[in-house]
Write a protein that binds this DNA or RNA. Structure first.
Lengths: 211, 211
DNA sequence: CGATTTTTTGATCCCCATCAAGTTGAGTGG
DNA sequence: CCACTCAACTTGATGGGGATCAAAAAATCG
């Protein structure tokens, strides 16, 4: 990865836009990026949040499939496609590494599909928090507090809920002493048992098959 | 792909189960496969349907992440992992091909996430039909009729709706003369304009951000 | 400390999950 | 070929949860 250049993005700065030809892929070093699509009506749907270590910009047909924007200040390695291709031909190992990353992304996308398919607000938010917690842990950061770099609107755009419902869900969790809202960006889990229980599926599209 | 063996699965036969060690991956030749997860409560969530040409069984950490079952009679090439690895080292081109397939799967998973995130029944079903139509077209099959190899329950498990809602949606579309239900497995589009219009987003989580 | 953004809270309504019967239709054996 | 059977599908009634619209409160920023 010595041929990559380090680039910086300011908060809210666009990294690339869906449809543009893919010139480079990025490897996030620090900060948080959102990858999203814009609906015809102008609403954004966030496909995934990207943290340190995540690969960003992979796509098919030579065009970005999503848009990407920095949620916080971001530093990332920028890998121009031509250089990447040269390396792919020289090192078979790199190809394997990319494949692994992609498999992770697929599972991540499937988890996300599950998350947004749930109807009840609390399970959604709890599951979202679990996801953030896990990511934090996998990056070796302290896990006693969960950090929410994105705002409520963006959470809603990711989990598929309205802004209001997101707020209510957080409030309810706090009122029930399941979590503690230290401030807008920091959540602490107060009752792990209840928390995990909520992630289960007590209702919401269980009907099941009748055979 | 000369080292692969052709295998057959009967309708409803299990191909592999989530959690099992990955011994081989499959390349569907004919028939339809569903890839799904089972929730703690026993409900199934279908992650994707796989048709001729699709790769199946890729995963991380050496274990299948989903279960797979034949929806119709299926024939597929079975590629044992060791053989695959040997080929990966010899042919860089193969690795590239796999990467492309994976990128497609990611986009497919993201589309699916969008599909299930929608709240209204008609757009969901229409979008689902569009997806099937497109797949049919990409396989060079006639596109004047859409074939539904899966039953209503499975459609529900894929789009994230109850069985009843799926049925109602089909009925409503037929009643409005948008589609025609030739029989349980075959749908014809009667009013393309209305059909495509429905796939849009007239309502349902549009609230949009307030800045 | 005022101005703007972000979040909270309230009231109403609509849509779908759910539960529960019916109805259709495909497949089977007589 | 027809009754029979079971699974797949349809249809109805009800209730709940969140989207939506609207407005107040809180936090951030210059």
């Amino acid at each position: 990865m010595n041929i990559a250049s380090l680039v910086r993005f300011k908060k809210r700065q666009e990294i690339y836009r869906a449809g543009e030809p893919v010139e480079a892929i990025y490897n996030v070093v620090s900060g948080v990026v959102k990858s999203f699509s814009v609906d015809p009506d102008g609403g954004e749907r966030i496909n995934t949040f990207l943290f340190a270590g995540d690969l960003l910009g992979l796509s098919e047909e030579g065009r970005y499939a999503n848009s990407a924007e920095a949620i916080t200040a971001v530093t990332a390695y920028r890998l121009p496609i031509p250089k990447l291709q040269r390396h792919l031909h020289r090192e078979a190992e790199l190809g394997f590494h990319v494949i692994c990353k992609l498999c992770q992304e697929i599972r991540e996308a499937q988890r996300h599909a599950f998350l947004v398919s749930r109807r009840e607000a609390l399970p959604k938010i709890v599951m979202f928090l679990q996801m953030l917690e896990q990511l934090q842990a996998s990056r070796g950061e302290p896990t006693n507090e969960i950090h929410l770099p994105m705002d409520r609107t963006e959470i809603g755009e990711y989990v598929g809920m309205s802004l209001g419902a997101v707020s209510r869900a957080f409030r309810k969790l706090a009122a029930d002493a399941v979590i503690e809202l230290r401030n807008r960006q920091h959540v602490k889990i107060r009752n792990r048992a209840a928390f995990d229980e909520l992630a289960g599926m007590p209702g919401g599209l269980a009907e099941g098959r009748r055979r």
